[in-house]
């Protein structure tokens, strides 16, 4: 069997190698697919901090993904219409600058995660799943019924936002931006899992009573993890909106929350590269099977069933031959 590290290196290299090949073969659509996979992988890596490390089955991470998307949509739409976002009490103008949008997406989704987490983490198990789902759906219906930013139709942004020194309209350059952000996300998640915080968070998942007995409060630890997790997923949302140059309430929908969970499960819950493998597989299947049938989700469902029944460690567990993810 191959070691998990080898599998990880392979997975990490797969996206840039694919993009290089697509660039050589002049297949811009493949580059867009790879970019989509990288961005969804980032959202999944974010969710996996809560789900895999913390055992918090959030069925509402679309809330953060959507908030990131709308942070981009709202700022960019004001910039393209030259109408300031706010004039009183102080002037806030729209922007087309990615770094600024990212910062706003991070802060917005972190604050939302703080509020949602503070309430939902008072519950556990199936109630936690339901409460997070409810928050996600609240934002979904709010976005639908908010006409200022397109309501149900969503918001189109005509020109992709800019990054200093790069041409973001070039698919390869935009891919490199998304991939660089993903790399940073994976690196941070990797360090987090090995840090003092990661030790306590994972321990709280395994045995909350044990964590309390050593004088550490599981609630606070989980809340901070939820905020970090939500912020990373929110940043992915901003990138996703930029990829499509479009935001709509579907970014908030529970389907998306479910898809993010599917990435983690397909790839391997609690594994650093689990969501990366899952997101890549998902985008691949969506492209290949989606071309064969509009009902391709049936096959995805079957695959998920097989993974859950026969490969509990997900794709990575299957490849590296280790069922349980641990240090």
């Amino acid at each position: 069997m191959i070691s998990e590290r080898t599998v990880n290196i392979f997975l990490f290299a797969l996206l840039p190698v694919t993009v290089l090949a697509a660039w050589l073969l002049d297949e811009p659509f493949i580059i867009t697919l790879a970019t989509k996979a990288a961005i969804l992988a980032l959202a999944g890596v974010g969710l996996n901090i809560a789900l895999g490390l913390g055992g918090l089955v959030s069925f509402g991470h679309a809330a953060f993904f959507g908030l990131g998307g709308y942070a981009m949509g709202i700022l960019a739409s004001h910039a393209q219409s030259y109408a300031p976002l706010m004039e009183v009490p102080f002037l806030i103008e729209g922007t087309k600058s990615m770094p600024v949008i990212w910062l706003v997406a991070l802060v917005t989704s972190a604050l939302a995660a703080l509020a949602i987490g503070a309430l939902s983490l008072r519950t556990s198990g199936v109630y936690f799943i339901m409460v997070t789902l409810a928050f996600g759906q609240m934002l979904y219906y709010f976005a639908i019924s908010w006409p200022a930013y397109g309501g149900e139709d969503g918001l189109s942004i005509y020109v992709r936002n800019g990054f200093p020194g790069l041409n973001t309209l070039d698919p390869v350059q935009f891919f490199l931006i998304a991939f660089a952000v993903l790399t940073v996300g994976i690196f941070l998640a990797w360090r987090l899992a090995r840090s003092a915080f990661g030790l306590a968070l994972s321990a709280a998942r395994q045995n909350a009573e044990r964590v309390e007995t050593v004088g550490l409060g599981p609630y606070r630890i989980r809340l901070v993890a939820f905020v970090i997790s939500g912020a990373m997923t929110g940043l992915a949302g901003a990138l996703f909106a930029d990829l499509n140059r479009f935001v709509s309430p579907t970014m908030f929908s529970w389907h998306l929350s479910g898809e993010l969970i599917v990435f983690c499960i397909l790839g391997g819950v609690g594994r650093l590269y689990g969501p990366v493998a899952g997101a890549m597989l998902y985008v691949l299947l969506e492209h290949v099977l989606g071309g064969l049938s509009a009902y391709w989700h049936i096959y995805l469902g079957l695959l998920l069933l097989l993974v859950v029944l026969f490969a509990r460690g997900g794709l990575i567990g299957l490849l590296s031959g280790r069922e349980v993810a641990h240090e």
Partner: peptide
């Protein structure tokens, strides 16, 4: 280590490996 961390109290450290 978890016990030692509880005694230390410095749980909000996210980057340095334990």
């Amino acid at each position: 280590l978890l016990g030692a961390l509880g005694q230390d109290g410095g749980v909000m450290r996210f980057f340095r490996p334990i």
